[in-house]
Amino acid sequence: MAALLSAENPRLAPRATGTHLPMSQSPDRNVEAQVIAAILAGNTRLFHDLIRPYERTVFSMAMAFLRNPEDAEDVTQETFLKALRNLHAYRAEARFSTWLVSIALNEARSCLRRHRAVESLDASDETDSIVPELLRDWREVPSEVLERLEVRKLLRDAVTELPLIYREVFLLREFEELTISESAQALNISPASVKVRLHRARIMLQRRLAPQLRPLAPKRRRFPW
C-alpha cells in the first residue's frame, strides 16, 4: 500500500504543501478507493496523504466564505477531522472530493451562523437579467499582476463580498471545479439554480473588477512609423 502513495506513483504522490490541485484533477479514484479501504482497515496514518491534495482548495473555499483566516483554518481542521471520523460512512458513488466539499460547506455555514446570523439570506435568487460592465475592447490582464498584494486584495474582496448564495456556487465551480450537478448536489438545489447563480456571480465580478483591472493590462506597443 505504501507504494501506492510513494513518489513512484504520481497519481497519489504526496504533494508539496501549498500546491494547488483543483478537485477535477484530484487523484485517481481507484487509487483513492484503495487508500480509503486501507485506512478503514487500520492503516489510519494514510489519511494524511489522502487529504494532502485538498488542503489548499478546502482552505481557500473556507476563507472566501468566512473572510477571516482564523475561522477558515478552524473550519478546515474541523472538516478534515470530520472526514476522518466519518470515513466509514463515505460511499464511493460520489467522488471523495465532492464528499469532502459537502462537509466543508456545512462546517463553513455553521461557522457563519455562529458568527453572523445576518448574512444567511443576503440575496434572493433573482431571475432578472444582469447587465455586465460595457467595454469596447479588452486587453488581457496577465497573471503576473497577482504578484502585487493590492491586486490580490482587489480580487479577494470582490469574491468574498459576493452575496452568499452566489459566492457558494462560484467557489464550488471555480475553486473546487465541481460540475454543475455535483454543485447542485452539494448545495441541495437544482442544476438550473446553480446555472442562474453562477451566471450572476460571474457577471457581478465582471462588473466590479473589469474597470479596476483594465488599467493593469500591458500598454499597446507604439511603433515609431
Binding site: 482552505f59 481557500s60 497573471s143 499582476v145 497577482l146 490580490r152 473589469a210 483591472l213
Partner: peptide, 12 residues
C-alpha cells in the same frame, strides 16, 4: 480573464 485571475492560488 477575470475568472482565471480570481481562481489563481495566489489570491487566497
Amino acid at each position: 480573464n477575470i475568472l482565471i485571475l480570481t481562481a489563481d492560488e495566489r489570491v487566497f
